[in-house]
Computed example of a mutant assay.
Amino acid sequence: MTNNDVFRRLRYALNLNNQAVVEAFRLSGMKMGQADITSLVKKEDEEGFRECGDEVLQAFLDGLIALKRGKREGADDKAAPSSEQLTNNDILKKIRIALSLKEDEMLAIFKLASFPVSKSELSAVFRAKEHENYKPCGDQMLRNFLKGLTMKYRESVQH
């Protein structure tokens, strides 16, 4: 999945308007305006499309955490950009933190998307990369989690 896909789907699933998205970016220390947001949600072949890089998606996710849970005590306004590439595991972890999701809630979200995941599979995704039981989160797993989130938070959506 591209970062633009993740951004679009997450924004839709959580029903975030442009104002909320701008606020999330502000909380992460990144200045983004309405026009910037509009260009991020456009499809690749549309005029004005802007690619959502790792730094931008990470700033949005960090801002979403601050928006949903409040800022951490003593946290900098500007999130330190990571030198590593943003992985699906990182994205899933940040969504989990932002929405304060417990393991059973995450499993239920996967089940909503008809993509059952076991407890051990889920915990493997959240392990450190160096851990012997670490498992990379594939695009299919992330896509189905976002689909389940959409079904959970936008109940009027029928699939």
Score class of each variant (00 low, 15 high):
3 N>T: 12
4 N>M: 06
5 D>W: 04
6 V>R: 03
7 F>W: 12
8 R>S: 02
8 R>F: 05
9 R>N: 09
11 R>C: 10
11 R>Y: 02
12 Y>C: 00
12 Y>Q: 13
13 A>G: 09
14 L>G: 04
14 L>C: 03
15 N>F: 11
16 L>N: 01
18 N>H: 08
20 A>V: 08
22 V>Y: 02
22 V>C: 04
25 F>L: 07
26 R>L: 06
26 R>F: 08
26 R>P: 00
27 L>E: 10
27 L>T: 05
27 L>A: 01
31 K>G: 12
32 M>H: 00
32 M>N: 10
35 A>W: 06
35 A>Q: 14
35 A>E: 08
36 D>T: 14
38 T>M: 10
38 T>S: 15
39 S>M: 08
40 L>I: 03
40 L>T: 05
44 E>L: 12
44 E>S: 14
47 E>A: 13
47 E>G: 11
47 E>H: 14
49 F>M: 11
51 E>W: 11
51 E>D: 14
52 C>V: 15
53 G>V: 15
54 D>Q: 03
56 V>N: 04
56 V>M: 13
57 L>M: 07
58 Q>K: 15
58 Q>W: 07
59 A>N: 01
60 F>K: 05
60 F>M: 13
61 L>P: 09
62 D>F: 07
62 D>T: 11
62 D>N: 14
62 D>H: 09
63 G>I: 06
64 L>S: 05
64 L>G: 01
66 A>D: 13
67 L>S: 08
67 L>H: 07
68 K>A: 04
70 G>Q: 11
71 K>S: 05
72 R>F: 04
72 R>M: 07
73 E>D: 10
76 D>Q: 06
76 D>N: 03
79 A>S: 10
79 A>W: 11
80 A>C: 04
81 P>Y: 07
81 P>A: 00
83 S>K: 12
85 Q>C: 15
88 N>D: 03
89 N>Y: 04
90 D>L: 12
90 D>Q: 10
93 K>V: 11
96 R>M: 13
96 R>T: 10
96 R>H: 12
97 I>D: 08
97 I>Y: 01
99 L>E: 05
99 L>K: 02
99 L>P: 00
100 S>Q: 02
100 S>C: 03
100 S>F: 00
102 K>Q: 07
105 E>P: 00
106 M>T: 03
109 I>C: 03
110 F>S: 01
110 F>K: 06
110 F>C: 04
111 K>S: 02
113 A>F: 12
114 S>I: 05
116 P>A: 01
116 P>V: 05
117 V>S: 07
117 V>F: 00
117 V>P: 00
118 S>C: 02
118 S>M: 02
119 K>E: 05
121 E>G: 05
121 E>Q: 08
122 L>C: 08
122 L>E: 01
127 R>A: 09
127 R>E: 00
128 A>K: 10
130 E>N: 01
134 Y>T: 01
136 P>T: 04
136 P>E: 09
137 C>S: 08
139 D>I: 15
139 D>Y: 09
139 D>M: 14
140 Q>M: 09
144 N>L: 13
145 F>A: 05
147 K>R: 14
148 G>H: 01
149 L>R: 08
150 T>R: 15
152 K>Q: 06
152 K>E: 14
153 Y>T: 02
154 R>F: 06
154 R>P: 08
154 R>E: 04
154 R>H: 13
156 S>C: 10
157 V>G: 04
157 V>N: 00
158 Q>K: 15
158 Q>L: 09
159 H>Y: 13
